[in-house]
Amino acid sequence: MNPVLQVSGLSKAFHLHLHGGTRLPVVEGVDFVVHQGECVVLGGPSGAGKSSILKAIYGNYLASSGAIILDDGEAPVDVVTASPGAIIALRRHMMGYVSQFLRVIPRVPAIEIVAEAARASGFSPDEAGGRAGRLLAHLNLPERLWNLPPATFSGGEQQRVNIARGFAGDHRFLILDEPTASLDAANREAVIALIAERKAVGTAFLGIFHDAEVRERVADRTIDVTRFSPVREIAA
């Protein structure tokens, strides 16, 4: 069986046009695969390019070169060369992303935010509502908050809404960008359980976890990103 994700020869550099056209290389020669039902964690110090790799895979950053093949079991798609429409379709049906911060339309209730994500990936409005409720309950978000917009929530509460939103769809591949950063021990456990539950049904994960304990418990493999560090050009 093909891997869900196959990254080969990926590099990413930023051209800072507003700063004299400086070229800022972030990673080079990134090669790895993620299989169905496994959780792969990117390791390495801050600034090593972990987040940039995740964003390039999600299509949020434009890769400078290389290939990012996502295989949904039907037609493999290379994110680097795919059309915007193809990437939107991938995000709808195949790959989800849980970011560090919650970015939503102001004044939309928490449960709606989660249910909308479920609807977007194909659940009926009724199913989506039920799914949203179960996820928020599992993540211990007090029910009295469900119908409030998350803007006034604490960091941990917002983060749980964000995780629920990421898990609301039925994606085969989930990208986790430090989802447990602002959670207490009990809620970290809830997230770990959620990941395990999804792995068991074959969902593939690629993530970054600062918390060493969480990383140990969810990771099947860890990839040290420092080996993709570009050769720095030394100013003469």
Partner: peptide
């Protein structure tokens, strides 16, 4: 031109970056 979040988070052209 491109995916909305890609253009806004990783703009390629000088004017878009501005």
């Amino acid at each position: 031109a491109g995916l909305t979040d890609r253009v806004l988070d990783d703009p390629q052209e000088a004017y878009t970056q501005l």
